[in-house]
């Protein structure tokens, strides 16, 4: 039978909602209803700083196996979405 997706896990106080969509064990989350992992980062002084690593809630679609950066809000935020176990541990990013 198909195993559940495993994603790297880390949240902020504003994004605790991500902890509710899969069992969390340390820095790993086992997803209940998605095959997508996500990463959301703030960009501070040109460097990405992790806000969220978790199972996906809102993205719904994740065609890529690795986590490729998509810039948002004029580059002040980046996100990535991917579809393999722990794929959100590393973000593919070009400043």
């Amino acid at each position: 039978f198909p195993q559940n997706r495993m994603c790297a896990f880390q949240v902020t106080s504003q994004t605790k909602r991500f902890a509710t969509v899969g069992n969390v064990s340390g820095s790993v989350q086992l997803c209940e209803n998605t095959t997508c992992c996500v990463g959301y980062y703030r960009v501070i002084d040109g460097q990405p700083k992790v806000d969220v690593l978790a199972c996906d809630i809102v993205e719904k679609s994740c065609p890529d196996a690795t986590c490729k950066a998509q810039k948002r809000f004029n580059g002040r935020q980046i996100k990535c979405v991917c579809n393999t176990d722990l794929c959100n541990s590393n973000i593919t990013w070009t400043p």
Partner: peptide, 13 residues
């Protein structure tokens, strides 16, 4: 619709 957004303090949902 539930969305992920960006605020002064960083990522929000």
């Amino acid at each position: 619709l539930e969305v992920v957004d960006f605020a002064d303090y960083g990522t929000s949902i």
